[in-house]
Design a protein around this nucleic acid. Sequence first.
RNA 1: CGCGGGAUAGAGCAGUUGGCAGCUCGUCGGGCUCAUAACCCGGAGGUCGAGGGUUCAAGUCCCUCUCCCGCAA
Length: 307
Amino acid sequence: MKIAFMGTPEFAVASLKRLVEDGHEIVGVFTQPDKPGNRKQLKMPAVKEYALSKNLPVFQPEKMRGEEPLSLLRSLAPELSVVAAYGQILPEAIIAVPPLGTVNIHASLLPKYRGAAPINRAILDGENETGVTLMYIASRLDAGDMICARRTPILPEDDAETLFARLAGIGAELLSETIPAIAAGTAPRTPQDETRATYAKMLSRELSPIDWSSPAQRVIDHVRGLVPWPCASMLLDGKTVKVWHAERGGATNDAPGTLRASKRGIAAACGDGNCIFVTELQPEGGKRMSASAWLNGKRVSAGTVLA
RNA sequence: CGCGGGAUAGAGCAGUUGGCAGCUCGUCGGGCUCAUAACCCGGAGGUCGAGGGUUCAAGUCCCUCUCCCGCAA
């Protein structure tokens, strides 16, 4: 089948890859323009990198609105458009181009967690289940009719990175399995229950600081929900320290925010009388490292209290 | 020319006004212990990121370069 693909980050690559492996003809890959990455260098989206490696035609319009992208897409004559974390709202005209429609792979169980950061938000909220929904695109954000969905548990040891990877795989699978029905016109269309819709707002750096008055589990969810960006953080000696990984500890009498060095990592007291062990962190200007390595150089005096 | 931090033993760091290169962990050997991720004693391990300059003497001061990281998402 002739398919146009629109996607940008790593999450979308699994689906594009699957389409290629299934033998579909990818008539065009639309992805966001290269953005400044670290220190001046332009960084290309993960999807572009993959597309180039397969010699697929790549297009990076600034906007999908306007005549130019529209006539471009028409000239490619896709039968179906597949969207996965593209990063732009698509105009009606673009959505209407392929005769079989425009479908979207969204990393949540819609109508919950519509929007930009469904995976992270699900973890932050302490959910124990999420999934992927395949849907037809409507003009309103993630509000289109659903075709099918697949659930997966959020395991205690999951963080946003592992969950991203798993959901990307599930999304690719779901897409691959459902395309025949879409082609045959037998794919179901289930409207979303608007009354149960929730939104997953985009992440920002302001979310980083850890609130030590929260219960231990909530702090853990905060840490694992924000990797690899913006990451949970704590302020130590006036310096921001990113927390990459933390584990549950036992009860403590220390006041919330109190730190102690220990074999398992840096024990930090939380608001509910329990503590967590920070096991992996990254100091300002430094590399990501294990807590034990960090403790070798910067000794934390027992009882340091964080804000 | 976007702003800033960094590169010193396998890892993480310290190194004052230039004057014998150090600390913690790990590692190796020995000891102690019913036992240990514990404790004690001892050892190995460094072209101080690269190149040039100043100096009797440079990890340290000056110039150039490379690489890493954070912010700007």
